[in-house]
């Protein structure tokens, strides 16, 4: 059987907020190592890779590997029935066709449970090669979200140019052009830091719509890491973490726009 107890059930709500725009349904793969999800959006432009480590759960038991196909809109409905600080237990019998979510209030005087039908999803997994990226940018996730939101007003594409000077985000459209430049800084407040690890300068162009969807994960982590190399997909990574627990990560891969 599978049983996983998450002290902060709100974490799963935030994870759902971070993937529900991109995916209608997805398989959660359970193993001894934890819960993993890998799925592409319908148009095969982006991929979500979620890893929640077994160690991040208060209790974690997975007797045999199983894949739980879930409709994410249904899962959102169920998670809406919980409070952010509820303790969440997810459980399923081997070969079951339902998964159960149990919510316990912090003081223990309210317990609710919801069964959700599982789906048979024929999901293809992609092998993602280990890559040394030419540019790795670490920046505050709120800043990333704001930049992407602001520039999306201009055009359907955003160019990200990374060089020794820093990072420049640009977008052009009917109303004009927007450029936002971030210098590397070493401000005393490390939370505001933008750090660039550069092997060679890279400029790539991406669809604004997907970057905006990725930015929905900003609630999971104060930092975001963008990794780029010429002519390969961008990686946008958010740690899934609180001050006292490292749950894992959510990574988004996004295919670049390429000159015709």
């Amino acid at each position: 059987m599978f049983e996983a107890r998450l002290a902060e059930g709100g974490i799963l709500k935030k994870v759902l907020d971070a993937i529900k725009e991109l995916l209608n349904e997805a398989s959660f793969d359970c193993s001894e190592a934890g819960l993993q999800l890998q799925a592409m959006d319908n148009s095969h432009v982006s991929l979500v890779s979620l890893n929640l480590r077994a160690e991040g759960f208060e209790n974690y038991r997975c007797d045999r590997n199983m894949s739980m196909g879930m409709n994410l809109a249904s899962l959102v409905k169920i998670m809406k029935c919980s409070a952010n600080d509820d303790v969440l237990t997810i459980k399923a019998q081997d070969n079951a066709d339902v998964v159960t979510f149990v919510f316990e209030s912090k003081n223990g005087d309210r317990v609710s449970d919801f069964d959700m039908k599982l789906m048979n999803l024929d999901q293809e997994h992609l092998g993602i090669p280990e890559t040394d990226y030419a540019c790795v940018i670490k920046m505050p996730s709120n800043e990333f979200a704001k930049i992407v939101r602001d520039l999306s007003q201009f055009g359907e594409s955003i160019a990200i140019a990374c060089s020794k000077q820093g990072v420049k985000f640009s977008s052009t459209g009917d109303i004009g052009t927007g450029n936002i430049k971030l210098a590397q800084n070493s401000s005393a407040d490390s939370d505001d830091k933008v750090v660039v690890d550069l092997q060679e300068p890279v400029t790539l162009t991406f669809a604004s719509r997907y970057l905006n969807s990725f930015a929905k994960a900003a609630g999971l982590s104060e930092k975001v890491t963008l990794s780029m190399s010429p002519d390969v997909p961008l990686v946008v990574e958010f740690k899934v973490a609180t001050s006292d627990n490292d749950y894992g990560y959510i990574r988004y891969y996004l295919a670049p726009k390429i000159e015709d």
């Binding site: 095969h44 432009v45 992609l126 594409s157 162009t205 295919a255 726009k257 015709d260």
Partner: peptide, 14 residues
């Protein structure tokens, strides 16, 4: 105009 590429042209199916 830049064209959207597909992830499938970068990553192989497992």
């Amino acid at each position: 105009k830049a064209k959207q590429s597909s992830l499938m042209s970068f990553f192989q199916k497992k």
